[in-house]
């Protein structure tokens, strides 16, 4: 069977699943096939209130990548904030810059902490090289402003997610742009914010994550001073691994 024959079969299996476990299995199979026609079905699976199916669907959508971005962005307006959080996780995993405005908006204003958390994470996983070079700096400034704001979110987990993104942004800045005029400023704003959080954040888990971020940024700066033999390729910009929550 080739893909065009396989898709309807796998999609039907998801639609006809009559138990929680069967649904998880069917979504996992559909996700593993990585077929573009399955995007609507995978997106629907984000709203079934079944964490196993949603995790599998997120993985599948990330694997499909750019073709899933537009439908996901349309879903964000959905009334179902559970599905919205999963959709944002998928967008964060894909890292497509078309999601920028949605991520900024959700990170700053969404009432649901799981949505803000996923959006905060997504701001750190954008693929900067998709932007025209002259735009990178202004967008990074925008993202940095948003991250500094949500580093003060009342929920520890949103601040934690913001720290992970401050870390990736600090590491992306030297790699992505060659405009030295404002970069030291951006980098030092991140450094200062992290240090301030280490000194004052009420949550031990967040402070621990800050320390880890500082170590990673320092390691990277060390490499800048003693550059490796190879030139850093765009493709090597680290995209965080999305853990598959499977039994």
């Amino acid at each position: 069977m080739n893909n065009s024959d396989l898709a309807p079969v796998l999609i039907r299996a998801v639609e006809e699943a009559d138990s929680s476990d069967r649904l998880v299995d069917a979504v996992q199979e559909l996700a593993a096939a990585g077929i573009e026609e399955s995007v609507p079905t995978l997106i629907a699976a984000l709203g079934y209130n079944n964490p196993g199916a949603a995790v599998a669907a997120v993985d599948g959508l990330i694997a499909i990548g750019e073709a899933a971005v537009s439908p996901l962005l349309e879903l964000i307006d959905d009334y179902n904030y559970g599905a919205r959080a999963w959709a944002l996780r998928a967008l964060a995993g894909i890292g497509d810059v078309r999601a920028l405005d949605t991520l900024l908006e959700a990170a700053k204003t969404d009432f649901s902490l799981s949505v803000r958390r996923a959006a905060a994470r997504g701001l750190g996983t954008l693929r900067w090289h998709q932007l025209p070079p002259e735009k990178v700096e202004s967008v990074q400034t925008q993202v940095l402003e948003a991250l500094l704001l949500i580093s003060q979110d009342p929920e520890w987990v949103v601040r934690y997610a913001a720290v992970t993104s401050l870390e990736t942004l600090a590491i992306a800045i030297p790699a992505a742009v060659n405009n030295a005029a404002t970069l030291p400023d951006q980098a030092s704003r991140i450094t200062n914010q992290l240090q301030q959080m280490l000194d004052t954040d009420a949550d031990l888990g967040v402070r621990t994550r800050v320390k880890f971020a500082q170590e990673k940024i320092q390691q990277q700066q060390h490499q800048e001073v003693f550059p490796p033999k190879r030139k850093l390729q765009e493709t090597e910009v680290e995209v965080p691994h999305r853990g598959g929550g499977r039994r």
Partner: peptide, 16 residues
């Protein structure tokens, strides 16, 4: 904990 079938919010609190 990371792999159990439950909401990520709860897994994150547990791992914290």
């Amino acid at each position: 904990i990371a792999q159990t079938l439950a909401e990520n919010s709860l897994k994150l609190i547990s791992l914290k």
